[in-house]
Design a protein around this nucleic acid. Structure first.
Lengths: 197, 197
DNA sequence: CCTTCGATTGAGCGCGTGCTCAATGTAGGG
DNA sequence: CCCTACATTGAGCACGCGCTCAATCGAAGG
């Protein structure tokens, strides 16, 4: 089927968006990368819709990778905390920030990001709930706790990426662990020492 | 002195930026509002520099208003917590988010916002330190606490403004109080008796 | 008065970018 | 072999927007 080219365009868009963020990518970048003519992109997509779909693809893939279904809740939490401030995650968070910002004025992006955000919250929420059930930590209200952890996480990521105000990766990571301990109790602290057995 | 017109342009830019954010305002909007020709704006400014200066003006004024020098630390904290999620503050936070985003690619904005952010942190920091000295609450590391509170605050504001993920103003306010209690101890939250919603 | 010179104006330029559309390619049915 | 229908192409269009620059204004000095 000829939708080879269609998916080629979508994949190229997702890859570029993942690498450079949503703001920097142009239609011509996508068609060049996909090896097709400019017209074909507009035959299959509107740019705002393609851009939104590409961003959602890239982010969903990342979210899925982060919360690997096989891992135990403490391992998932550990992965989440560790992944937050590594430099190879910069492009990802930058994408998140730019997409969020675009969603303020772009309806397609708003729709796509709404699903993404929903998904992320529910992943964190179920992780927290499962961990609480398993006795890994205590968490009275998983949804509220997920919202708080994500809010704090977003704030810290913003500081690290923009430098407004300046905050080192190590400092941000320490703050996030500090907060996780507060939310989930001392048993949940994965960083200082693996005391749990 | 002819710099009447210059300051008229700057004031018009600051007012527009305050009302509509940095992303939506155009050079022609500013010259129209200031009642001058398009050429005069370019005679006195480069757009990126004017936009950055206008944003800094608007934000600095707001920061100063928030931390009125006469108020006691607990009053200042209450004002900060209360001001976070009123609807008339939406435009302000939207401006903050857009300016932060722009700073990623615009050097002028990055410089201006760096000073702004620095200022905000130091205001919160001294408020926390003064309150701790006065026995209003306990705070071992005012700078770190200020960074954490602001990070959490930024994250919540982002959620409320973008709806990604959805979060009510009331929920956000409750979370912020929750966090303040975590940072400063129970003594810091006058409304904490029935704060949970 | 005239001259000079900075302040001021706005039509128009340059450029980036999403998108159009007539032209061309190509595969399948008759 | 033609015909039809869809895939594909890319030069060029439309539009927004920051910025230029020749022209004009106006006040101060002589």
């Amino acid at each position: 089927m000829s939708s080879d080219r269609r998916t080629a365009i979508l994949d190229a868009a997702a890859a570029l968006v993942r690498e450079q963020g949503v703001a920097a990518v142009r239609t011509r970048d996508v068609t060049t990368r996909a090896g097709v003519g400019i017209g074909l992109l507009n035959h299959y997509f509107r740019w705002s819709a393609l851009r939104a779909e590409a961003a959602a693809l890239a982010l969903d893939a990342e979210i899925d990778a982060l919360f690997a279904s096989g891992a135990s809740p403490p391992d998932q939490l550990q992965a989440f905390l560790a992944r937050a401030f590594t430099d190879d995650a910069d492009a990802l968070w930058r994408l998140w920030i730019e997409a969020t910002d675009l969603a303020l004025t772009d309806d397609d992006m708003a729709r796509a990001m709404s699903a993404c955000a929903q998904r992320l919250v529910s992943r964190v929420e179920t992780m927290l709930a499962l961990g609480a059930d398993a006795g890994d930590w205590t968490c009275a209200d998983p949804h509220a706790a997920a919202m708080r952890i994500l809010a704090f996480h977003d704030g810290l990521v913003g500081f690290v990426l923009t430098g407004l105000p300046q905050l080192s990766r190590a400092g941000a990571a320490a703050h996030l662990r500090h907060f996780a301990r507060f939310e989930l109790g001392p048993a949940a602290d994965p960083g200082s020492n693996q005391a749990r057995t």
